[in-house]
Amino acid sequence: MSELILHQYPLSPFAEKARLMMGLKQLNWRSVEIPRVMPKPDVVALTGGYRRTPLLQIGADIYCDTGLIADVLEHLQPEPSLYPVLHKGMARVLAQWADSTLFWASAAYTLSPKGVAAKFADQPPEALQTFAADRKAMRTNMVQLRPADATSAYRSYLRRIASMLDQDFLLTETPCLADLAVYHPLWFTRTGGPAISDIFDATPEVLAWMDRVAAVGHGQATPMSSTEAIEVARNHVPTPIPSDEVFQDDHGIPLGSRVTVAAESFGPETSEGVLVAATRTRLVIERTDERAGKVHVHFPRVGYVLRAAQA
Results as ranks from 00 to 15, higher is better:
309 A>K: 11
147 P>M: 12
292 A>G: 07
302 V>E: 13
215 A>G: 01
218 H>E: 13
270 T>W: 01
302 V>M: 13
226 S>E: 12
201 D>T: 12
158 L>T: 10
84 P>G: 10
151 T>L: 11
189 T>S: 06
162 A>K: 08
260 T>V: 09
301 R>D: 02
190 R>Q: 13
93 V>D: 04
120 F>T: 05
12 S>P: 11
301 R>A: 03
121 A>M: 02
3 E>S: 13
237 V>F: 07
311 A>H: 11
140 T>L: 11
112 S>E: 03
212 R>L: 09
36 R>K: 14
281 T>F: 13
161 I>L: 11
303 G>P: 07
231 E>M: 04
222 T>M: 07
80 P>Y: 04
244 D>P: 05
121 A>T: 06
46 L>C: 10
304 Y>I: 01
45 A>I: 08
153 A>S: 07
243 S>M: 12
67 G>V: 01
167 Q>M: 14
125 P>Q: 08
169 F>C: 05
2 S>P: 15
211 D>I: 00
232 V>E: 07
6 L>Q: 04
264 E>I: 14
41 P>N: 12
97 W>K: 04
24 L>Y: 04
257 S>R: 06
77 Q>K: 15
259 V>F: 06
84 P>Q: 10
162 A>C: 00
98 A>K: 05
149 D>Q: 10
258 R>F: 06
219 G>R: 02
153 A>E: 02
183 Y>S: 09
179 D>I: 07
140 T>C: 08
31 S>Q: 12
144 Q>L: 14
128 L>S: 07
120 F>M: 06
132 A>M: 14
5 I>Q: 07
309 A>D: 00
287 R>V: 11
67 G>S: 14
111 L>Y: 15
189 T>R: 05
270 T>D: 01
284 V>I: 14
21 M>S: 03
46 L>R: 09
259 V>Q: 04
258 R>P: 00
149 D>F: 02
177 L>V: 01
218 H>C: 10
87 H>E: 14
101 T>V: 08
152 S>A: 10
95 A>P: 11
45 A>S: 14
22 M>D: 00
226 S>G: 15
130 T>M: 03
